[in-house]
Amino acid sequence: MKLFAFCCILSCLSVAVGQITWHQLGTSEYYIHDGTKVNYQAAVSACALLNATLARVKTTQVQQFLVQKINNTTANYYIGLDRINPTPTGFQWNDGTNLTADESQFGVTLDNSGGNENCVHLRHESQYKWNDISCGTTMKYICERHADIIVNGSFAKVVSSTYNSYTILDVMYKMCFDAAPYKVEASARMLDESLPYRFNVITTVVQPHFFRIKLERVDIYSGWSPSEIKISWKAYFNTAVQIY
Rank of each mutant, 00 (worst) to 15 (best):
M1R: 07
F6Y: 13
I9K: 09
L13K: 13
A16S: 14
V17E: 06
V17D: 01
Q19N: 06
W22G: 01
H23C: 11
Y31N: 09
H33A: 09
K37D: 05
N39D: 14
Y40E: 05
A42K: 12
A42V: 01
A43Y: 12
A43W: 02
A46I: 01
A46R: 03
L49A: 11
K58A: 10
K58I: 12
Q61E: 04
Q64L: 05
Q64G: 08
Y77I: 04
I79H: 00
D82G: 05
R83S: 09
N85Y: 03
N85V: 03
T89L: 13
T89P: 04
Q92S: 07
N94H: 11
D95T: 14
T97L: 10
L99R: 06
T100W: 08
G107I: 08
D111Q: 10
D111T: 11
S113K: 14
S113Q: 15
G114T: 12
G114M: 12
E117Y: 12
E117G: 05
N118F: 07
C119M: 15
H124Q: 15
K129C: 11
C135S: 04
T137E: 15
T138K: 14
I150A: 15
A156Q: 13
V159T: 07
S160T: 11
T162K: 05
Y166M: 02
T167V: 13
L169T: 01
L169Q: 05
D170N: 07
M172E: 05
M175D: 11
C176P: 06
D178P: 01
A179K: 08
A180L: 09
P181S: 09
A186W: 02
D192V: 02
D192S: 09
L195M: 09
R198M: 06
F199L: 00
F199M: 00
N200S: 02
I202P: 00
T203N: 03
H209P: 07
H209W: 12
F210L: 14
F210V: 01
R212Q: 11
I213E: 00
V218F: 02
I220W: 03
I220P: 00
S222L: 10
W224Q: 07
S227P: 01
E228T: 06
E228H: 06
I229A: 13
I243V: 14
